[in-house]
């Protein structure tokens, strides 16, 4: 999945993040709409929608009669429930690809890589009941990075924190050494829009879904997670700036709405 997204977003890697989010939103809108058409009972949805509009007209036609109006409102609510019920099955089916897509977009567009001179917080959490002092965790940075602050160890939280600074663009290594083992993790300081992995954990099913392609912490190590806090990224739309999520929601919904008429989707 990550490879596939890397492939289709490659043309937008070099500073065309906005175009990339527009492209992927339109594509997602079209695919999701098509999937919705395939997985939903369009005929039944059309019937229910038509009935709902009939009941609205009914409220207008018999507006002088309270019982008729109340009856129409009741009919609208019942039909609306039927409509929602009809939308539930396709929604359940579509939630899977939608989440997978959003995970991929989150990797690429939620955080920006560091720029030379930027600092980032590195937070290392040890496993429960492991003493962070005894574990003796140390951080070594390779070329292109430097430590911006000494280690701060908080035993009550099982946490050790450092501040690092990017000195040179590119993907650089950061090595964590502890009593239970070593791990080398990437720090993203490149200008390209590639997946920015900010959280590293041990291998698990949920990790493989939510953080696909991220380097794993060896199982033997007593470290539970490592987080590198990158600056958040948003998109400039002229008059306002929006996060990738809102941009994606709005664009995909807007194009979905247009395509709805072309694809004749209820």
């Amino acid at each position: 999945m990550t490879g596939f997204f890397t492939l289709i977003l490659r043309p937008f890697e070099n500073g065309y993040g906005t175009a990339g989010i527009v492209f992927i939103s339109i594509l997602t809108g079209a695919v999701m709409l098509f999937l919705f058409k395939l997985t939903s009972n369009q005929e039944a949805m059309k019937v229910v929608k038509t009935k709902i509009s009939a009941y609205f007209l009914e409220m207008r036609l018999y507006k002088e009669d309270i019982s008729a109006v109340v009856g129409s409102q009741k009919s609208i609510l019942v039909a609306n429930m039927q409509y929602m019920k009809l939308a539930l099955i396709p929604a359940a089916v579509m939630i899977v690809p939608v989440i997978l897509i959003m995970i991929q977009l989150n990797l690429r567009y939620s955080q920006a890589g560091l720029q030379p001179g930027d600092t980032a917080l590195v937070k290392v959490k040890v496993e429960e009941e492991v003493d962070v002092i005894r574990e003796g965790i140390t951080l070594n940075v390779g070329s292109g990075l430097e430590k911006a602050s000494p280690a701060v160890r908080i035993p009550s939280l099982g946490e050790a924190d450092w501040k690092i600074r990017l000195t040179e663009a590119g993907i650089h290594d950061l090595t964590l050494k502890s009593a239970s083992g070593d791990v080398v993790l990437p720090v993203f300081g490149n200008e390209k829009l590639v997946p920015v992995f900010s959280i590293f954990k041990k291998g698990s099913i949920s990790e493989s879904i939510f953080n696909p392609g991220a380097k794993r912490i060896p199982d033997a190590m007593q470290i539970a997670s490592v987080e590198i806090r990158y600056p958040s990224m948003d998109f400039n739309w002229g008059l306002f700036r929006l996060s990738w999520l809102w941009s994606f929601l709005i664009i995909s919904m807007a194009f979905g709405f247009i395509l709805k008429f072309i694809f004749k989707v209820e």
Binding site: N80, A87, V98
Partner: peptide
């Protein structure tokens, strides 16, 4: 968010309500 298709369905339901 569940895509535009089902999204519209639920959005419509909300608007109807």
């Amino acid at each position: 968010y569940i895509g535009p298709g089902a999204g519209f369905a639920f959005l419509t339901s909300f608007l109807v309500l």
